[in-house]
Amino acid sequence: MAEPGEPRRAGRLPRRVDADAESVRRDLVRLVLTIVELVRQLMERQALRRVESGTLAEEQVEDLGLALMELEQAMAELRDHFGFTEAELNLDLGPLGPLLPRDG
């Protein structure tokens, strides 16, 4: 805190942030879903590497594919339930680009 007579420094954050409970809850849900989606995409990429390396039996490849499809469906249901789109979960990291790049 600035001493009496000391000028306030530019860029200093306010002592209090006005945030309603609903927006805090929504932002927290968005962050959690973003992290889960990031982990899901990393698991999918790792699974594809294992499939391409030929180290899995045909039955394992089938099971893995089904599990990944179910996980993707569950994420879609969670996004719908909380009212988020895929784009809203893709955080912009500024100069680093989007957090969740999609293979096009």
Rank of each mutant, 00 (worst) to 15 (best):
L38D: 03
N90C: 01
P7C: 04
G104S: 03
D27L: 08
A76W: 03
L68Y: 07
R102Q: 02
Q73E: 11
D27C: 02
V24E: 03
I35D: 04
Q60S: 06
L93Q: 12
L38N: 04
G104C: 05
M43W: 10
T85Q: 08
V39P: 01
R8V: 08
H81E: 13
Q73D: 10
D20N: 15
L89S: 02
R30W: 00
D27F: 05
L68Q: 14
V39D: 11
V61S: 10
F84D: 05
R26M: 10
M69N: 05
L64S: 10
R15E: 12
D63K: 11
V17H: 06
R30I: 00
R9S: 11
H81G: 04
L91S: 02
D80C: 04
G83V: 09
Q73P: 03
R79G: 06
E62P: 00
M75R: 06
L93I: 06
E44L: 13
D20S: 13
R16Y: 12
Q73N: 13
E44S: 12
P101V: 02
R50N: 04
A2M: 05
D63W: 04
G65I: 01
R50G: 00
L48F: 04
G54D: 07
A87M: 01
S53A: 15
H81C: 08
L64M: 12
T85H: 03
L31Y: 01
G97Y: 13
V51L: 15
T55F: 02
L31A: 10
V29P: 00
V17G: 04
N90D: 15
G104D: 10
R25Q: 09
L68K: 10
E88N: 02
V36S: 03
L33M: 00
L56G: 11
I35S: 05
E70H: 09
G11T: 00
A74W: 10
V51A: 09
R12M: 13
E6G: 00
I35V: 06
R49P: 02
L68S: 10
L96F: 13
A47S: 07
L64V: 09
L99W: 03
A47N: 05
L100R: 00
E6P: 01
G104H: 14
V24I: 15
D18C: 11
R40D: 06
V61K: 10
V32W: 08
T85E: 06
G104E: 08
E62T: 13
L91K: 07
Q46C: 08
P7W: 04
T34A: 04
F84P: 01
L66I: 05
V24A: 11
D103E: 12
I35A: 11
D27Q: 14
A19M: 12
V17E: 07
E72R: 15
R15T: 03
A76E: 13
S23Q: 14
L99E: 04
L89Q: 02
L28C: 03
R30V: 00
E70C: 07
R9L: 15
D20Q: 05
L38S: 04
A47R: 09
L31P: 00
P14A: 08
G94H: 14
V39N: 10
L28N: 07
L96G: 01
R12H: 12
T34I: 03
I35K: 11
V29A: 08
A87S: 11
E70G: 07
T85I: 05
P98Y: 11
L71W: 06
A10V: 14
L99F: 02
R8E: 00
R40S: 05
T55S: 13
